[in-house]
Nucleic acid binder design. Structure first.
Lengths: 253, 253
DNA sequence: CGAGGTGTTGAAAGTGCTCAAATGGCGTGG
DNA sequence: CCACGCCATTTGAGCACTTTCAACACCTCG
């Protein structure tokens, strides 16, 4: 919040102004000097779809911030199944958790939509935690948020059926209020979305139709129109312990 | 690790020596003075099975440590389903996460086996985090562990079937090595265990039989005998991204 | 136009859930 | 010590939801 005005002027490789001011809840708690160091050591690179940024188990030296594109975080089981941890886009960071997990990444990261990604040394974060108590507190707060999101995720996977999970995802997509009509676009392709929600593409397809029948939403390709978010809330959130729209918990990294 | 020798001498209400020295990974990082304050303000009480310690959403002033008995952490959905977050026993703490979640508990806690439970003010923790950077770091480390456990839990619920989940639970129960034979006792009744693993009691019963057929374990009431832990590992962990025995991650709070 | 990727649909099988009923252990009151 | 009742556990049958395998419709890009 403080160093931001300066940051906004920061110019990246190629002289294009930095398109977002690292308004990340975590990074905004950095001291100005560390933020400056971070920006100094920040190196950008462009990656094509399919590029693996790192694999689970790799030794970790960097954490990453996304400027554009989409990145999938996932793990693979011994018998070939894949578990999608999350799918992230601009403004989100990943790989920082490695700091506390034996300096290895605990999941793999793959670019699923051409992306520009910045890499920053984890050592800076580590030092900042040790030196700047305010940052350590921000980190704790941030991790508590993640933890809550994960608990919700566990609940969703155990208690909600496929159509409800999709409905819940749509609700978390809305930027508009939590009542009345809304329109939203699925942020990435349906196959990936299915994986993100822990179901097969076929199941996703059928579940979305089912959701349409049950709640009256309209589906036009990747655009979804909802007449009444409340209907959707009621449909999805009745199988969830969080009141009303599971809202307020969007991503997790 | 440091304040422990002193702590071990600590005497609780009723003059019984404290049966464990708060060897909790988190609390052992407290400063000696805070540890002393904590022990001073620690109040013990006995609770019968069925007692609700707190409900999700309650304003939180305390966090708790278990001296004996079992406590179930859970949440309830609007349509009556219950999601068991975890089941804890002696030495484990709970309720501390409320500090970062608007000072309300994010789950409910119920005694499921007569228990002695100590309550400590969250404010002490809060202050310690602000004042003692080493503790803040321990907290971060601790939360990172929890986070990893949760990710594993998500994976288990999505990727493992019922018999595999039980097998994985058994593996995490062993104190013995990770190979060869082992004997273990289910820590609490099967109905609760079923809930903890996210399945119905009937499913648990059938899944356990299935596990017996598939891996050759022997079931005598709540005692389980395994001839070869490797067989079990292979059976359960093939559907999991963590290498071999999901080990090393036992509880989560 | 053809290839490949994405999304949908159908049919069959698998897995877990619900409802119902039977079994077995265990403590209490007689 | 025994009968009774309660509770945990098991078993059976049917059902709901999801997956799997296959086939097909679309769309985009050479």
């Amino acid at each position: 919040m403080r160093a931001m005005t300066k940051t906004e002027q920061h110019v990246i490789k190629g002289n294009k102004p930095f398109p977002f001011s690292l308004p990340h809840p975590l990074l905004s708690a950095l001291s100005e000097s560390t933020m400056a160091d971070l920006l100094k050591s920040l190196t950008w690179s462009a990656h094509e779809k399919g590029k693996i940024i790192f694999l689970a188990g790799d030794a970790a030296q960097f954490f990453f911030v996304i400027k554009s594109g989409w990145v999938k975080l996932f793990r693979e089981t011994m018998d070939g199944d894949q578990s999608v941890v999350d799918v992230l886009s601009a403004g989100q960071i990943f790989g920082k958790a490695a700091l506390f997990e034996g300096n290895t990444y605990s999941y793999s990261a793959e670019v699923v939509e051409d992306a520009e990604i910045g890499a920053m040394p984890l050592s800076l974060l580590k030092r900042e935690i040790e030196v700047n108590n305010a940052f350590a507190q921000a980190m704790i707060k941030y991790m508590a948020d993640i933890r809550r999101q994960q608990e919700q995720e566990i609940e969703h996977r155990s208690l909600q059926n496929a159509p409800q999970r999709i409905g819940c995802f749509l609700l978390r997509l809305t930027t508009q209020g939590s009542e009345g009509p809304a329109t939203m676009d699925l942020p990435y392709d349906k196959t990936l979305l299915a994986a993100r929600l822990g179901m097969q593409p076929e199941t996703f397809s059928r579940a979305l139709s089912r959701l349409r029948e049950d709640t009256g939403i309209r589906i036009k390709g990747s655009r979804i129109e909802v007449d009444n978010l409340n209907t959707l809330s009621q449909y999805s959130c009745s199988a969830c312990s969080s009141n009303f729209p599971c809202k307020d918990l969007k991503d997790r990294t």
